[in-house]
Write a protein that binds this DNA or RNA. Structure first.
Lengths: 114, 114
DNA sequence: AATATATATGAACACATGAACATATGAATG
DNA sequence: CATTCATATGTTCATGTGTTCATATATATT
């Protein structure tokens, strides 16, 4: 059976996932990255940014939260390199920085909904 | 282009992920599930169980941690339905309860390693 | 029944985390 | 350069989390 590009990637990773528990360095990185996704506000911000870039104020309004709370979470997401920002005059526009973000959330949605 | 089964799943989910931020119920469930993966010990336990079931004592020894710490984390993983347990005499054997667990971690490994 | 072994659980503690609030920074505009 | 608007940041506080320690439960063995 032919595999699409995405699944060929998976096969490479499955090789890595065999048998031995990897060193703490990788598992810690993994856990830390999962932690970034492990917050309702951050998930909602990422979802908001799936289809378009947005400025801080608009994200805050859309999610009915304070500008400060959103800004703090944007910082966390940016440090994890999940989103990137660009200044345009007074505004800072944020957008998804990584193609995998959607896939990661997708995979979890699939898990949840079964 | 033909898509494999896994990617057809993804397409269904992408439909869901369009435009609107979903209600808090789904995003909260998502965040809570990510939280379960967001701990180094739990990631290492899951990894340990990828290829075979194991009893509590052996997991603890393999990860060089106390039986109590492992048992507590096993409870968390079991409550999230990521693993299941079976008793055999004095031992409790744990194993992965969900096909998605590996895929979810795979996807994150892919993200980390790029 | 008494004991040994494997696992589970409850309480306590240290630490991490997220939001609110106040304030600072940066950019545009008068 | 003072003001305004948008965003960022530092601090504080309440809450959540993971481990340890002590103890309880469960099963097997004698």
């Amino acid at each position: 059976m032919d595999m699409c590009e995405s699944c060929q990637y998976n096969m490479q990773v499955i090789e890595k996932i065999k048998n031995e528990v990897p060193d703490n360095e990788l598992t810690t990185k993994l856990a830390d990255m999962f932690k970034v996704f492990g917050d309702n506000t951050r998930i909602r911000i990422l979802w908001t940014l799936f289809d378009k870039e947005m400025c801080v104020y608009d994200i805050a309004e859309k999610l009915s939260m304070s500008q400060s709370a959103i800004s703090h979470q944007l910082k966390t997401l940016r440090q994890a390199r999940l989103i990137k920002s660009r200044r345009d005059g007074k505004n800072a526009f944020y957008s998804i920085d990584d193609d995998h973000v959607k896939k990661i959330i997708e995979q979890m949605v699939i898990h949840i909904e079964e």
